[in-house]
Structure formats: C-alpha cells, structure tokens
C-alpha cells in the first residue's frame, strides 16, 4: 500500500485519519483534559476555573462516601463475578450434554442480556417491591413479605441477583463455545484411561477451559466495575444511600454536587483500580494457560 511518500501521506489521510481523529477527540482528549480538571475547583457552570493544585486528591482521601461506595463496589464485583461465572459454566455444561431443545434454551437464557440495564432494573423493581411482596404475604413466606429494596442489607443482593440474571446467559455462550471446542480425542483418551465424573472435570476439562475463564472473568469484571444503569433504575442508591456503587457516586459528585474536580479525581481512582485488577487477572490467566 503506497509506494511513494506522497502516496503514503494520501493513504494516511484517507484511511486512517478520519477514524483516528474521532477516537482522539472523543477518548484521548477528554481523558487528558480530565487530569487538568482534577487540578481545578470547577463547578461545571462558571466560566472561572481556579487552579487548586492537588487539593482535590486530598479531598478524595477524606471523602468517606467515596470509599464506602468503592468498598461496596468491590464486594458487588466479587459476588457478581463469582456467581455469574459459576452459573454460566453450569448452564453451559448442561446445555452441551445433548439435552433436547438445548438451542432453544440457550437462546432463551441470553435474552436478558439483549435488553438494556434501564429496562431490566425497572422490571425487577416491580418484582421486588410488588410481585414478591404480594407472593410473600399471600403464601406466608416471611423473607418476601417486605420489599427487599427497602432493606439496607437485602437491597445489595437485589443488585447481585439481577446482574447474575443478566450476564450469565452471555457468559454461558462463551463457555459453550469453549466446551464445543474441546478436542474429542483428548476426552476419549481420558475416558479410556478411566477418567470419569469429577476427575475428568478437574484434571481434563477445567484446565482446557482456562482460556474461556480468562475471557469471561475479564468481561464480567469490567462490566461489574462500571455498572450504572441497573443501579440507577433498580435501587437508585436507596435505601438511605446504602447501594450507591462507585459509578453512581462519581456521577453524583460531578453532576449533582457540582464538584467536577473531585468527581474526576475519583473517576481516575476507579480507572487505576480497574486497570490493575484486569491487568493482574489477564496476566494470571495467561500464566495458567501456559501451564495447562
């Protein structure tokens, strides 16, 4: 492609420049400008931005609400990632064992992932605050007789439940692709050698499925750290601000409390955390892959 230097420049301008320019203007420029915002006391409206040095970062360290939301997010991420992947793996295992109608079931389990978080949150809000309460009272099931969304401890679990419901079908598809990709030769050889049941799962299937685990855990991690829609429409951060995940905290900090500098500094903390966690995860996954 392109033999003379003027031809090369022409190619650069026609092929690469438009796309790269949009990317730079939308992602890179704001990301860098974000650092500048953290050094100011801007409120998002006024024309003046006073330079305040690193004081916003100091505010972040003393913002107990932020750390509370961060801890809650980490807890949410741990439970979501574990449960989503366990459920998804289990579904994938069953739906590759030759059950009748497995294609229909696979397609059905994926539906929640087709629909946006806003709508899913509203659907489950109705279920938790209305349908289940009705059922609990009618059938005398104590745990359901009061809305989980009004309970500080249970509201957290509604977020986890809806996340598992939403994401497990998606991850299931990736695990199914992994299962179908398993070499039948290896599996046959294993069963001739007498590996069945748990032994077969533990020493043959699980090691061969490591690449699928790496992908699924990476996807669930990054999705869970950034979750906002479901948080907004299912719990709205309530009751008493007990379910505000970090994405919502950052949003409120900037757009409700109008502290753009602090909000952006907190967003950068989230960025560093996500980068470190997914970096470690991918590194460890690759190491396991080599060993297996």
């Amino acid at each position: 492609m392109g033999r003379t230097s003027s031809q090369k420049l022409k190619n650069l301008c026609t092929f690469a420049l438009p796309g790269v320019l949009v990317f730079v203007l939308v992602v890179i420029v704001p990301f860098l400008y974000g650092f500048y915002i953290t050094l100011t006391d801007w409120d998002g409206v006024s024309a003046v931005k006073n330079f305040v040095g690193f004081s916003n970062y100091k505010v972040v360290f003393s913002d107990s609400e932020f750390w509370k939301s961060m801890l809650l997010t980490i807890r949410y991420v741990i439970f979501s990632v574990l449960l989503v992947n366990i459920v998804a793996f289990f579904f994938a295992y069953l739906l590759t064992s030759g059950i009748k109608g497995q294609n229909f079931l696979r397609a059905g389990f994926f539906i929640p992932n087709l629909i946006g978080g806003v709508v899913l949150g509203f659907i489950w809000q109705f279920i938790f605050s209305n349908a289940l309460v009705r059922l609990g009272k009618g059938a005398g099931i104590g745990i359901f007789s009061k809305s989980w969304l009004a309970n500080e401890h249970l509201a957290f679990w509604t977020l986890v439940i809806v996340t598992v419901w939403q994401l497990s079908g998606y991850m299931m598809l990736i695990y199914i692709a992994g299962f179908t990709g398993l070499s039948t030769d290896v599996l046959e050889a294993a069963s001739i050698d007498g590996a069945t049941g748990w032994t077969r799962m533990r020493y043959i299937i699980l090691p061969l499925m490591v690449p699928s685990f790496v992908i699924c855990i990476f996807l669930t991690l990054s999705r869970a750290f950034m979750v906002y829609d479901i948080n907004l429409t299912l719990t709205g951060g309530e009751p008493y601000g007990s379910t505000i995940l970090v994405a919502m905290h950052v949003y409120n900090k900037a757009f409700t409390s109008r502290q753009y500098g602090v909000g952006q500094a907190e967003a950068l903390f989230l960025f560093v955390l996500v980068a470190v966690v997914s970096g470690i995860q991918v590194y460890m996954g690759k190491k396991k892959e080599v060993e297996a």
């Binding site: 400008y33 998002g44 994405a247 989230l270």
Partner: peptide, 14 residues
C-alpha cells in the same frame, strides 16, 4: 480498559 466514568466528566466539560 478506561471506564466510561473516567471520560464522561471532561467530555461534558469540553
């Protein structure tokens, strides 16, 4: 790997 939250505030600002 940049979360959207780390871009949205400056995006709105700019």
């Amino acid at each position: 790997i940049i979360p959207f939250q780390a871009i949205m505030i400056p995006l709105v600002a700019i």
